[in-house]
Simulated assay, not measured.
Amino acid sequence: MISPIDSQSQMLEMMTRLQQTASSERIAPASNSVGISEDFSAVIRNINQQQNIAADMMTAVDTGRSDDVIGAMVASQKAGLSFSMLLQVRNKVMSGIDDVMRMSL
């Protein structure tokens, strides 16, 4: 199980890498051949993992195995926010598809 401390250190590491990339003179385009469906699948798996971590932490608090109520609430809020963001992205994509379908040729 991933603890909140591990995920925070991973986020700090990712932010440091992004800052280094942004400070470089030229940002090269992504050269991977992965399609958008694989990207969405990876995002969904990540959000599912966050939901599972939050559920595990809440269960541990409920059963008395853990006293980290704040960590459980933060994990729960993070998972909820990630899911909400996923729904907003899905809504934007569907709206874009609807706009393309309404275009006349």
Rank of each mutant, 00 (worst) to 15 (best):
G35K: 04
S41E: 11
A72E: 01
S24E: 15
I36G: 00
L18G: 02
R45G: 03
T21P: 01
A75E: 02
V34H: 04
N46A: 14
E38I: 05
A22M: 11
L87S: 05
L18C: 12
D68P: 02
M14T: 00
A42R: 15
A72F: 05
F40P: 01
P29R: 05
D62Y: 06
G64I: 07
D6V: 13
V69S: 02
S82R: 07
R26M: 01
I36Q: 06
P29Q: 05
Q77L: 15
K78P: 00
R65F: 14
S7H: 05
Q10K: 12
R45I: 05
N46D: 08
L18A: 06
M73L: 12
Q8S: 07
F83C: 02
N32M: 11
L18T: 00
M73S: 03
Q49R: 14
V74Q: 00
V61S: 00
Q77T: 00
S66T: 06
S24V: 02
A79V: 03
N52C: 09
Q19C: 15
M85W: 12
E25G: 01
Q51E: 11
T21A: 12
A60I: 04
D6P: 00
V34Y: 05
G71H: 02
V61E: 04
M57G: 01
L12M: 10
A22Q: 14
G35R: 04
R45P: 03
I5S: 15
Q49N: 12
D6R: 12
T16G: 04
G64M: 08
V69R: 06
S82K: 10
D68C: 03
Q20K: 08
S66K: 08
G80P: 02
M73Y: 02
S24A: 15
D62W: 09
P29M: 03
A79S: 03
S23E: 11
A60K: 12
I36F: 10
S41A: 15
V43T: 03
E13C: 07
